[in-house]
Design a protein around this nucleic acid. Structure first.
Lengths: 110, 110
DNA sequence: CTAATCTACAACCAAATGGTTGTAGATGGG
DNA sequence: CCCATCTACAACCATTTGGTTGTAGATTAG
């Protein structure tokens, strides 16, 4: 999934499809590359579950899956939270070390 | 930056460094690949600003940058929010269409 | 000082990636 | 029915990527 997000064109496709539902050929018009290339990008996004294709006549409409984007976001959210939590714990430990009744043998070490 | 996150090993390195500050060689012990390979992964994370290296004696300590992770998270957060907002607007439009005094010529179309 | 450790970086290689063109299968319009 | 449009997919190519080994520079331990 992060792999799918790692390409500029694919992130842009995602952004466009958030605004409007677009067919693959409509999307392809927006980029300086072949239709087949855009189609491959959409396929990558689809395999990652970030996007869903839905037939409408002879067109294939591309829609972003908000839940999938949400899951990716949440993964990073947890990373960030874990880090903040760690800083919190470290501050706590430092506070403990500073307690007046501490009889830590390493106390004298600057 | 998403590119840096697109590799499993790099995401794992990030997770490990969130828990502890680790030297490059310590990190390398954890993976079935050469030291140089891990070093390259760290370099990629560093170029993406996700991680910072800090000299300690002859070791190089790797620390995650929580702000960078936060920025990536926020980018996805905005994507998700944009999508939810769009659904909101669509619901609103549908509600307007359903208003009793509507004199829409397409009203009779099933 | 010498040896051991940790790091940096270059050169190289196989595989994946992003792009191309070409061909063929559905679908709708006239 | 026939044609134009939209899509899918295969084959191919250049570049990037993730990995290797080897060499060399710092820094600490003895």
């Amino acid at each position: 999934m992060f792999h799918a997000l790692s390409d500029t064109t694919r992130r842009d496709i995602l952004r466009r499809c958030v605004r409007d539902d677009l067919s693959v050929s409509r999307l392809a018009e927006a980029y300086p590359m072949s239709f087949a290339a855009v189609q491959k990008h959409v396929a990558v996004l689809e395999r990652a579950g970030l996007v869903v294709k839905q037939r409408r006549g002879r067109e294939q409409i591309v829609r972003t899956d908000p839940d999938a984007v949400g899951r990716a976001r949440q993964a990073l959210d947890e990373l960030e939270t874990a880090w903040r939590g760690r800083v919190e714990r470290m501050s706590h430990l430092l506070a403990q070390d500073a307690e007046p009744d501490a009889h830590d043998p390493t106390e004298g070490q600057i």
